[in-house]
Design a protein around this nucleic acid. Structure first.
Lengths: 242, 242
DNA sequence: GTCAAAAACTGACTTGCGGTCAGTCTACCC
DNA sequence: GGGTAGACTGACCGCAAGTCAGTTTTTGAC
């Protein structure tokens, strides 16, 4: 093995060691209440050294989510491997996502920061894009399941698989955000059983894909220019379904 | 008018003036990139003075949301006043919420910070509770509409109105969060028409309340103790609806 | 083994900001 | 007009992110 190879590997080990320390400290105290000094101490390096491996505090913190993405992906993979029908798998996946957020709450906190946009100006777009790419794996898995459900005839929807995944993801995310033990801010959400709540919502959506119904306008943005402004509900033609 | 009364009023005016300045500066630059010095400059006061009216930077920023809550509440009120059936109103309310987030994006950013919990350790719980109370008004309005829908027989659900509102709120929030122009982080969400997307999700949920279906376990937490662990999807009895 | 160049690491220092408080100013009242 | 309460000020403090000149370690040629 050449020297440069070994150096490379050693560098990677240092990086990992820093990540380990960062995980310990950030997950114990939270992002705001952790200083780079604390991380440095945890891995017995000088503060300056951390900056040789990570551009900023935010980038270091953000890097921790990569593990989280991997964990979620594995959990989802297991769920998909179960002997269920494709449409059942989708509900199971919502549950899996929920359970991930409960058992890996600190990782979910980073997810939230990304989705809320807290980290936007503070981290290279490249880094953010890289995270996006990693997250896409999970979406693609789900997309596959949706495609399967359509093939099996369980779904009659006119939406594209990708769109269905987005809907499920968004609604599930919102549900978890609002009522998961460790997240919920609005008092009233404390009264519901979080997992049931999340699954009730996912379930409603899934049911709605079984039949192509009148609500199913295409969701794409292609024709956006054609109408001057979007119609408000009462301006649209009455719809049979309600 | 007594002197003390006038003083009181002047103090309130100062407070308002500070809020005005804070709004200008925070909404232009964002929370992180705004310093208290900048706010002070905008309202031509010394930095120290700001702290006579607001406990911290976070509290000042958070106070700005009160306007946002009022605006949303008014928008919702108008929507509810429209000549629609109760169930139609619920969909219209989702749209209203969406439009609020688009036209008052900065206020929505504060909503997000609250819901994500970014402000938690940094602001008095009291202050947060006060905000909660204000937000409840909107929930209660919606609850009223749901109750109406149930009374009219449009909904056959076994859920409580409050629960239905929570579901709609959570799902709509998630949908907006993921795909609204100014928020979306995941690239794929750029491809959908945000408003249609949001309404498609709300619509699916609303449809699901029309009939009491097998998914409708009670969502309360009362009986939580009875089962050791929550069942995963494939462990539950097969359900007719899928 | 020696030594010089390269690479890795260090921690004192700079910068910027949130928050404080001793001191000043103003308005009111006796 | 003088004394007091309360509003206001801005220099100052502490802290933490990020930098960089200098130190230590590693490497590889001889």
């Amino acid at each position: 093995m050449s020297v440069s190879e070994r150096k490379e590997r050693e560098k990677e080990q240092r990086r990992q060691e820093i990540l380990r320390a960062a995980k310990t400290v950030f997950f114990r105290n939270g992002f705001e209440k952790t200083s780079m000094e604390m991380v440095a101490e945890e891995c017995q390096l000088a503060k300056g050294t951390l900056y040789l491996y990570f551009k900023s505090k935010e980038e270091l913190y953000l890097s921790l989510v990569e593990d989280g993405i991997r964990i979620l992906d594995e959990m989802m993979e297991k769920t998909i491997a179960k002997p269920l029908r494709a449409d059942e798998k989708l509900l199971a996946l919502a549950q899996t996502y929920f359970r991930f957020t409960q058992s890996h709450n600190e990782h979910f906190t980073i997810f939230k920061m990304i989705d809320v946009g807290t980290l936007n100006g503070k981290v290279d777009q490249e880094k953010l894009d890289e995270i996006q790419r990693l997250r896409m794996a999970a979406f693609e898995r789900m997309e596959e399941v949706v495609a399967e459900a359509i093939r099996q005839g369980a779904f009659q929807t006119t939406h594209k698989p990708r769109e269905i995944v987005m809907m499920l993801w968004a609604a599930t995310f919102g549900a978890i955000m609002m009522c998961a033990d460790k997240c919920q801010q609005l008092d009233m959400f404390k009264e519901v059983h979080a997992e049931k709540f999340v699954m009730r919502i996912a379930s409603a959506l899934i049911e709605s894909f079984r039949t192509a119904n009148v609500q199913e306008e295409p969701l794409g943005r292609e024709n956006e220019r054609k109408r001057k402004t979007q119609k408000t509900v009462e301006e649209t033609e009455p719809q049979k379904s309600f």
